[in-house]
C-alpha cells in the first residue's frame, strides 16, 4: 500500500475518472488534463500495478507466446507451415470433433437448462428453488478427474446404468454407444453444463416483467402467442449468450476427457496435451502452438459473437 498523506486521501477516493472539471483540486488553471493524468490516474493505478503485473507475466505473456511461436519454424524464422499441418489430417479432424462436441453438448444443455429454469421459476416452493440454485452452483463447478471416474462407475463397461440396461436387454455398448467416445463425452459434459445454464437462465426468466405477462394475458394472448411475441424474443438473447458461454466451457475442458480416455480421444485440447507430453512431430516443434492459437481463435470468435448478442440485447431493451 502506498502511504499517502491523510489530507490527500479524499481527493483520490472519488474514484478513477471521478476527477473532472467540477472539482477544482489539482490546479485546474494550467493543463488540467495532463495534471489529472499525472496525479490522478497514475496514483490510482499504482495500487493495482502488482495485480496487473502478475496477470501480465503469468497469463498474458504465456498466451501471447503461444500465438507468436505458432508462426515460427524450428530455426526461428517466420512460417505458416505450422498452421497448414495443424489444420489438416488428424488435427483438422480434432478441430471438427472438438467443435462438434462443444456445439452439441451446449445445445442439449441449453434446452434442458431452459426447461429446468422454467420449471423452477414456476414452482411455488421456495425451498426447491433454493436447493436447485445452490446445487447448480456446486455442480457447475464440478469437473475434471472425479467427474470422469464417477461416470465410469455409471456408464462405463461395468457401470451401474450399463448393467441395468443390459439386464433389460439393451446393452448400449452393442448399439454404438461408448463412454470413451465423443458421444460419451457429450453426456459427461452435461453434468456441469446443464447447471450452468440453469444459473444463467433463472435471472432473465425471473425478470420477465410481471406487467408484460399480465398485459399479454389481459389482452387475450394465448400461451403460444405470448411465447412467440413476448417471452421468446425477450429470452432469446440471454439464451444465445448462455449457449456461447457453455460452448467455450466445453471447448476448453481437458481434464475430464484426458482422465476418461487416457488421452486418446481426438479433440484439440487432448492433441495439444499429447504434443506437450513429448509426441512432437519432427520438423514441427511449434505445431502445438498452432493448435493453441487455433483454440484461442475459436474462443475469440465465440466471445465476439457473445459481445454482439449482448449489445443487440441491451440496445433493444433499453
Amino acid at each position: 500500500m502506498a502511504v499517502s498523506p491523510a489530507n490527500k486521501t479524499d481527493r483520490f477516493a472519488e474514484g478513477f475518472g471521478g476527477v473532472n472539471a467540477s472539482e477544482p483540486l489539482l490546479e485546474p488553471s494550467k493543463g488540467g488534463f495532463v495534471r489529472v493524468l499525472r496525479y490522478g490516474t497514475w496514483r490510482r493505478f499504482m495500487g493495482v500495478m502488482p495485480f496487473l503485473l502478475y496477470l501480465g507475466v503469468f497469463l498474458l505473456i504465456p498466451a501471447l507466446s503461444v500465438v507468436v511461436d505458432a508462426f515460427r519454424a524450428d530455426n526461428g524464422s517466420f512460417t505458416l507451415s505450422n498452421f497448414s499441418v495443424g489444420f489438416s489430417g488428424v488435427y483438422f479432424e480434432s478441430f471438427k470433433n472438438s467443435i462438434q462436441l462443444s456445439f452439441f453438448s451446449a445445445v442439449i444443455a441449453t434446452v434442458v437448462g431452459l426447461l429446468v429454469a422454467l420449471a423452477i421459476v414456476a414452482s411455488p416452493g421456495r425451498t426447491l428453488r433454493a436447493v436447485v440454485t445452490a446445487g447448480s452452483g456446486v455442480f457447475a463447478n464440478t469437473g475434471g478427474v472425479p467427474l470422469a471416474f464417477s461416470f465410469i462407475a455409471t456408464l462405463g463397461n461395468f457401470g451401474l446404468v450399463t448393467e441395468l440396461m443390459t439386464k433389460i436387454g439393451f446393452n448400449p455398448y452393442n448399439h454404438g454407444f461408448s463412454l470413451y467416445s465423443v458421444l460419451g463425452l457429450t453426456v459427461v459434459y452435461e453434468y456441469f453444463l446443464i447447471p450452468l445454464m440453469v444459473l444463467i437462465m433463472i435471472p432473465p426468466i425471473d425478470a420477465l416483467r410481471k406487467e408484460w405477462v399480465d398485459a399479454a394475458s389481459s389482452l387475450g394472448a394465448s400461451r403460444v402467442q405470448f411465447w412467440r411475441y413476448v417471452g421468446g424474443p425477450l429470452l432469446a438473447p440471454p439464451l444465445l449468450a448462455g449457449f456461447l458461454v457453455l460452448f467455450t466451457d466445453a471447448f476448453a475442458a481437458y481434464a475430464t476427457a484426458a482422465a476418461l480416455t487416457s488421452g486418446t480421444i481426438p479433440i484439440v485440447p487432448i492433441q495439444i496435451g499429447s504434443l506437450i507430453s513429448g509426441n512432437v512431430l519432427v520438423g514441427h516443434a511449434h505445431l502445438g502452438n498452432a493448435l493453441g492459437a487455433g483454440m484461442i481463435g475459436v474462443v475469440l470468435v465465440a466471445a465476439l459473437m457473445y459481445g454482439l448478442v449482448q449489445r443487440r440485447a441491451s440496445r433493444w431493451l433499453r
Binding site: A122, R126, P204, D206, V213, A216, L317
Partner: peptide, 23 residues
C-alpha cells in the same frame, strides 16, 4: 444478465400470470 433485461423484476415465487404457468 439482469442488466440486459433492465430493472430486475421482483421475484414472484409462483411465476407470473396465467400465460407463464407451467403445468
Amino acid at each position: 444478465m439482469a442488466s440486459v433485461i433492465g430493472a430486475p423484476a421482483p421475484s414472484t415465487g409462483g411465476g407470473g400470470g396465467n400465460v407463464l404457468k407451467v403445468g
